Amino acid sequence: MLRPAVRQVFAALEARGGAGCVRFVGGCVRNVVMGRAPTDLDLSTQLTPDQTEAALSAAHIRHVPTGKAFGTISAIIDGEPFEITSLREDVETDGRRAVVSFTTDWAKDAQRRDFYLNALYADIRGAVFDPTGEGFDDARDGRVRFIGDAETRIREDYLRILRFFRFTASHGQSMDAESFAACARLKSGIDTLSGERISQELFKLLAVDDPTVVIAAMIDSGVMAHVLPSISAQATPLRAMCRLTSDIERRLLALLHPDGLQPEALECLSSRLRLSNRVAGRLRDAARRLPQADINTGETSWRRMAYRDGKAVLCDALILHSALSGLAQAEWQAIETLITALDLPVFPLKSAQLIAAGLTPGPELGQAIKRIEADWIAHDFSQNVIDAAIDEIRERTKI
């Protein structure tokens, strides 16, 4: 509230709509009430999108219509964006998107939100507003509940099922029974959502300090089967992985173990969730190397695997093996430090050496290099292997 950029945005909007026409909303207010640091500074205003743009222009504040059709204009000051959304009420919903109309009524805007603890507002002077009458207490007590009738809120947007579990994991003290039951009843609605929306929410859930209790409830209720279709997700490996790392993609590896790490399952999952090539490749590489990854084999074996696949792939495969083996965090960190510090050799053989020994350029030369490199790796990168191979070629090709 004291930051110059924040006060500049408030001043610009209030110059157009009067004192109190703009308020902080949602997560930043909720977190402060809960004694946590505020995160995204989202703002709500009684101004329409056109009026918001006019107010920002008058104050010479750069802005972009990031979601103007839905009421959102982003003000940008010193590179920092502030999302400003006009108060809205739903006119029509279909479970994925809503048709909205703009209003000046804070209570109507609050009623269209998902959970009571997210329907809190605060002005620049520090006054907190709770139009539903339930949000402040729910935030203070760590209670995540749908506003009004849970099934009605879910049918407006089925992504709210996943948001319920995510917010319960991150902000809830316990699982609200009525909301949970509604999510379980309407879980098939998840199938109508885009893969991008599902994966974004799943990754946010996996980023919570300890999401395992909530994820176990999702698995037991059948909700997770609609998030990760055709895969038997496992909470136990995930619980162990969460003790070892906060890396979201490594946690996903554990959640997918073992059924979801089969090549065909990973391919279907990547397509359904619209995973990036990088993420899909990381999961695929770790799954491919998991059978060979063993925390008990030691540095020599690790160096071979790191040379073939890279240190990152080796660490991903080994941390999953460590989680399945019940390794403590300190033990894993020692292993990861050792792998990171490994001095990997460079294959010293050049094609010119084999040509000089008697091989002619062509397929046979390439095959010989691959065969010698594999033997060199298997013998712990010994130069003797290369010397012996060159001698053998000279002996075999001499006339």
Rank of each mutant, 00 (worst) to 15 (best):
S57E: 14
S57P: 11
S57K: 13
A58I: 12
A59C: 07
H60T: 10
H60E: 11
I61E: 03
R62Y: 12
H63M: 00
H63T: 01
V64W: 15
P65V: 02
P65Q: 08
G67C: 12
K68N: 05
F70T: 15
F70H: 15
G71I: 05
A75D: 04
A75E: 00
A75I: 05
I77C: 04
I77E: 02
D78R: 02
F82G: 08
I84P: 01
I84C: 01
I84D: 05
T85S: 13
L87A: 01
E89G: 14
E89F: 14
E89H: 15
D90M: 00
D90L: 06
E92W: 05
E92Y: 08
E92M: 01
G95I: 03
R97E: 03
A98C: 13
S101F: 06
S101H: 13
F102Y: 09
T103G: 01
T104I: 06
T104W: 02
D105T: 05
D105Q: 08
W106V: 15
D109E: 02
D109G: 07
A110M: 10
Q111G: 14
Q111N: 13
F115H: 13
L117G: 08
L117V: 03
N118L: 00
N118T: 05
A119P: 07
A119L: 07
L120V: 06
L120S: 05
A122R: 11
D123Q: 02
I124L: 04
R125V: 11
R125F: 12
R125Q: 15
R125H: 15
G126R: 13
G126I: 13
G126C: 12
G126V: 12
A127D: 14
A127K: 13
A127Q: 12
A127V: 04
P131Q: 07
T132H: 04
T132Y: 08
F136G: 11
A139W: 02
R140D: 01
G142D: 09
R143M: 07
V144S: 03
R145S: 06
R145V: 07
R145Q: 03
F146T: 09
I147H: 06
I147N: 05
G148N: 15
G148I: 14
D149R: 04
E151Q: 01
T152E: 14
T152C: 12
R155W: 09
R155K: 14
E156F: 08
R160S: 11
R163K: 11
F165Q: 02
F165V: 06
F165M: 11
R166I: 03
R166T: 06
R166Q: 10
R166E: 10
R166K: 01
R166H: 10
F167V: 10
T168P: 06
T168Q: 04
S170G: 15
H171K: 15
G172N: 05
Q173C: 03
S174I: 08
M175L: 10
A177R: 13
A177Y: 10
E178T: 05
S179V: 06
A181R: 04
A181W: 00
A182W: 02
C183L: 04
A184W: 00
A184N: 05
D191W: 10
